[in-house]
Design a protein around this nucleic acid. Structure first.
Length: 274
DNA sequence: TCCTATTTTCCTGCTT
DNA sequence: CAAGCAGGAAAATAGG
């Protein structure tokens, strides 16, 4: 790849993102991150992979869909590819949620805006508002065709075993999910999107679910950005992580700093869990 | 408005 | 000494 997560020596944070972001805490003040919107100024056909990913987040947020039940990997594609999927492709890729996704994209393709009011759509630079601030991906390299995305085989073959795995027992629409995504899910999603994970967190043992924060403060900033909280720190984020031990969403890994392990109650992190 | 789950904040003390 | 880690307590949030 062209982007090496090595530009680190200088300033851990600023070098990672926002080298040119005067927008940091300013324009974020709206009704919360739910007001983030997908780039309606451009057609979904022209979305980058990142924007597609962002759209997925929006949809599950709006519909209160359990993030862990949506196989993001199946949508590792750009807008052009996304738009070429038909209804069945969506169902195949996302089970029952595919229906919702299909409706959303269909709506957007026809110029609609889904049921999101974009009244406050002022900010153009929303790349700055999301989970993965553009991390300085040059415009042309937002996605890399060489990344073995599942995009190609999403419709052709019924092969993908993992596509249907999480849906066998239904699309559960969570009742109480404050912000669409919980911290652990946010962390998991970063782990699951290596192309957009500029060396923030890394798997230590993929099959065991052990991972380590490489840039703890950077991740905290990202999390804070998602929660529209510019004062988030790793100190505070880690406290929230520690609460997960009791709930067995995370298991304690002692001795090693910045290392955590997914527990029995954390789902959706496994690569190919049958 | 009250209730609940999930953080977010702060803090003291201990460990690497 | 500078980060992390452990948890307790209590406030803040946001959906129900």
């Amino acid at each position: 790849m062209s982007i090496t997560p090595s530009a680190t020596l200088e300033s851990p944070l600023t070098s990672t993102w926002g080298p040119t972001n005067p927008y940091h805490d300013g324009p974020l003040v709206m009704s919360g991150y739910a007001s983030r919107l997908w780039p309606h100024d451009s057609q979904p056909q022209f979305w980058s992979k990142y924007q597609v990913w962002e759209w997925l987040q929006q949809v599950i947020d709006i519909h209160q869909i359990d993030a862990s039940s949506l196989p993001f990997q199946n949508f590792d594609m750009d807008g052009h590819q996304l738009c070429s999927l038909n209804y069945h492709d969506f169902i195949r890729a996302a089970g029952s949620v595919g229906h919702i996704l299909y409706n959303s994209i269909t709506e957007l393709k026809s110029g609609g805006q889904y049921h999101l009011d974009i009244g406050q759509l002022e900010l153009k630079h929303e790349t700055d508002l999301c989970p993965f601030p553009d991390v300085s991906y040059p415009p042309g390299e937002i996605y890399d065709p060489s990344v073995q995305s599942l995009a190609p085989n999403i419709s052709p073959t019924p092969s993908s075993p993992e596509i249907k795995r999480s849906f066998s027992r239904g699309h559960q629409v969570k009742k109480h999910n404050p912000r669409g995504t919980h911290l652990w899910e946010f962390i998991r999603d970063i782990l699951l999107n290596p192309e957009r994970n500029p060396g923030l967190i890394k798997w230590e043992d993929r099959t065991e679910g052990v991972f380590r924060f490489l840039k703890s403060e950077a991740v905290a900033q990202l999390w804070g950005k998602k929660k529209n909280n510019s004062s988030m720190t790793y100190e505070k984020l880690s406290r929230a992580m520690r609460y997960y031990y009791k709930r067995e969403i995370l298991e304690r890994v002692d001795g090693r700093r910045l290392v955590y392990k997914f527990g029995r109650n954390a789902r959706g992190w496994r690569d190919a869990e049958k």
